[in-house]
């Protein structure tokens, strides 16, 4: 079986600043995969490369059997790759409903379908329904994260990439969001998850990759990674006592 997403020997850099070297990883159809590592390890950079916001300096990305390295982000969305970006990035001056509509831009000619997908998002997060006509910039952090997730799902992606959806949120909201992510995965959407919260990362994903200093230092089933000393070290950035709690 060929992987849905296959990265081979990716080198990633911002201009002269090299960030990731020789990254190879896969996500199979229907699988949930975690990408973990300390601050600055290159997790966001990797997701940006997958979503088409950063062109790799070397290496290849294949999605559903097609080479996608040179495709811009909007074309990758059309193939089925959606990203919930770091920091949520809702459109602050569009309403909640308009933000969702933008997520469903590729369905813009099927109004009824867009309306159905918006309803699905509201069912996941009833708070969004209450706030439908409100500008997204005025939402709380948790509500914005719900919106960013619901918005990404409007395109009905085959692969949903998430960049730290728990960042800065209260535990109860995090629980809510991860329950939805798990449900989305159960319904068949593949997940590539970057997450600092190890508990949720390992609970959601079946497999994981550990990034350290821009390279993959460990990979395997999350059950095995959980007890791996290298993972602990990479996760905590070498310092003992930081947050995360495996």
């Amino acid at each position: 079986m060929t992987p849905l997403l296959e990265a081979t020997a990716l080198d990633l850099a911002y201009g002269p600043v090299a960030v990731c070297r020789d990254l190879s990883f896969q996500v199979m159809a229907g699988e949930a995969v975690a990408l973990i590592g300390a601050n600055g390890a290159g997790k966001t950079t990797t997701l940006r490369a997958v979503a088409g916001l950063l062109a790799p300096r070397a290496g290849t990305l294949r999605f559903a059997g097609q080479t996608i390295d040179r495709l811009p982000s909007h074309a990758r969305l059309g193939l089925g790759i959606a990203l919930v970006p770091e920091g949520r990035r809702v459109f602050p001056f569009l309403t909640v409903r308009e933000n969702l509509e933008m997520g469903g831009f590729r369905h813009r000619h099927q109004r009824r379908h867009v309306a159905r997908l918006i309803e699905r998002g509201f069912a996941w997060f009833p708070r969004l329904r209450e706030r439908a006509g409100q500008r997204a910039g005025t939402l709380s952090g948790g509500e914005q994260q719900m919106l960013a997730l619901a918005r990404a799902m409007m395109s009905e992606p085959r692969l949903l990439c998430l960049d730290e959806p728990s960042l800065g949120l209260a535990p109860i909201v995090v629980q809510d969001i991860f329950r939805t992510i798990a449900a989305i995965n159960r319904d068949g959407t593949s997940i590539l998850l970057v997450e600092q919260n190890a508990h949720y990362a390992f609970a959601t994903a079946v497999r994981g990759y550990v990034l350290r200093g821009g390279s993959i230092v460990a990979a395997g089933p999350t059950a095995a990674l959980r007890s791996d000393e290298r993972v602990r070290a990479a996760y905590l950035g070498g310092s003992v006592g930081a947050s995360g709690g495996i």
């Binding site: 979503a51 088409g52 916001l53 811009p72 982000s73 909007h74 969305l77 059309g78 959606a82 990203l83 970006p85 990035r89 459109f91 933008m102 997520g103 831009f105 590729r106 918005r151 990404a152 395109s155």
Partner: peptide
Amino acid sequence: ETAGLMGI
């Protein structure tokens, strides 16, 4: 950038 992520 985010608009691009929406397929726009």
